[in-house]
Structures are given as structure tokens and as C-alpha cells.
């Protein structure tokens, strides 16, 4: 929900403008749903960026559905752009193919090159703080540099 909630004031876009939407595309429905719940949970209170999961095939199997992705992107589109994070294989290729065609995803939809889980958390937190699409994509991508050892 974009709502008119108070934005912390640190958002580069400033003010309670439309928030960037985040779509999580996985080969698996439960993975996409769980990562969405994790990212929203960690984003804490305040304004919440719209987040949608698009995992698996419409019948619940493993795979990727162009319809689910398109639907999810439209659902979270508030006019500030949509960041799509993907896990692997057909999730990556399907989003790339949809973007290459140009007319199915909302204007301002972008494939964000980021690790799926860590990138999702970074994207949702920054988007919820009012950051614009460039800043959301940069924050998600920076998660690649977060070493664990």
C-alpha cells in the first residue's frame, strides 16, 4: 500500500510521493512468498512499499509464469517504477524476455541485478523509505558485496 503515511524524510525523492514497487520472481511460489514476507517484516513500521510475489507456475508447480509476473508488476505499480528481483533460470529469462518486448510490464519496470533474499530486503527497506528506483536498484545490487566470511 502506498497510502499517505509519513515518510521518514530521508527518502531521496522527498515527501510522501508514490513508492517504488517490488516484485519477487522465483522458480518456486513458496520461496517468492516467504522472501516477500521476510522483506516486508524486516522493513519495519512506517510507509510500506508495495511488494508482490510471483513464484512458480499458476498451478503451483516449479517454474515461471509470465502472467503471474505481469500481474504482480501491475499490482505494485504506483507510477514510481517497479523493481523486479529474480532468482534463477527461467525467472531471469522470462523477466528479460518480457522487458525486451516492452509492452507487457508497466512503464518503469526494471530487472534489478541482485542476490534474491538479501537484495529483496534491501529493496523493500529502501523503497519503503521513499527512495527512487535508481536508489532501490543500487541498494539491492550492493547486497552482492555483503560478504559473510
Amino acid at each position: 500500500m502506498s497510502g499517505g503515511g509519513e515518510v521518514s524524510g530521508q527518502g531521496p525523492a522527498g515527501g510522501a510521493q508514490a513508492l517504488v514497487g517490488v516484485v519477487l520472481v522465483s522458480h518456486s511460489g513458496p520461496v517468492a512468498e516467504s522472501v516477500a514476507a521476510l522483506a516486508v517484516g524486516l522493513a519495519g513500521g512506517g510507509a510500506k512499499a508495495p511488494v508482490a510475489a510471483a513464484g512458480g507456475t499458476p498451478d503451483g508447480g516449479l517454474g515461471t509464469s509470465a502472467e503471474l509476473i505481469t500481474e504482480a508488476a501491475r499490482r505494485v505499480d504506483r507510477g514510481a517504477g517497479v523493481a523486479l528481483l529474480v532468482d534463477l533460470g527461467s525467472a531471469v529469462l522470462t523477466v528479460k524476455a518480457l522487458l525486451a518486448e516492452g509492452d507487457e510490464l508497466p512503464e518503469g519496470a526494471r530487472l534489478v541485478d541482485a542476490p534474491f533474499v538479501e537484495g529483496a530486503v534491501a529493496a523493500v527497506v529502501t523503497a519503503s523509505a521513499g527512495a527512487d528506483l535508481d536508489a532501490v536498484a543500487a541498494a539491492a545490487g550492493e547486497a552482492y558485496g555483503y560478504r559473510k566470511e
Partner: peptide, 20 residues
């Protein structure tokens, strides 16, 4: 377009892109 939306695996976007 039909292949991209109905295949569900990596071959969908690949063959879909080929034909489109």
C-alpha cells in the same frame, strides 16, 4: 508471445524470443 506466456520453463522465453 504465446510460448513466453505458456511454457513455464526457460525454453518459453528462449523459443518465444526466437519466434517473436
Amino acid at each position: 508471445r504465446q510460448l513466453i506466456s505458456s511454457v513455464g520453463g526457460a525454453s518459453g522465453p528462449l523459443y518465444g524470443t526466437l519466434l517473436r
